[in-house]
């Protein structure tokens, strides 16, 4: 069912419409906008400083951890005597391959559950 607007009420709303003077409205909005900009700038500076300090503190231990992790990545899961076969299967027959396959399986599972 459609419901048309009451023309008398429409007239009343139109009469009550007011073309408001700006006064100090725009200036107040811009003052709020400037405050917001300053706050955002300060937030970005704080985040940047925290990140810089964090990287400075953790860069040494992080580098050691990454080095240790990368040492084990090419290690074979199953030792193969045939050199060519070992090279051919190295993308899957390694710790890195296992991690990669694990990641792909998890992603597939996530998509199946949540899409």
């Amino acid at each position: 069912m459609t419901f048309d607007r009451d023309p008398a009420l429409e007239n009343l709303f139109a009469t009550a419409k007011k073309d408001l003077e700006d006064d100090a409205f725009t200036a107040e909005v811009m003052s709020r906008v400037n405050k917001l900009r300053r706050r955002m700038l300060v937030s970005w500076i704080v985040v940047g400083l925290v990140l810089a300090v964090g990287v400075g503190i953790l860069s040494g231990p992080l580098l050691v951890a990454v080095n240790l992790a990368t040492q084990f990545l090419p290690d074979s899961l199953i030792e193969l005597d045939d050199r060519w076969l070992a090279q051919l299967l190295s993308p899957v027959n390694s710790v890195a391959g296992l991690l990669g396959l694990g990641f792909l399986a998890l992603r597939l599972l996530y998509k199946k559950i949540f899409s």
Binding site: A16, K18, L20, T26, V29, M30
Partner: peptide, 22 residues
């Protein structure tokens, strides 16, 4: 551009303020 935004506020403020008053 903040000057342009201020101009948008100037142009649209009567409408938005009136709507909020209603």
């Amino acid at each position: 551009d903040r000057q342009a935004f201020a101009e948008l506020v100037r142009r649209r403020q009567p409408w938005i303020r009136d709507l909020m008053r209603r």
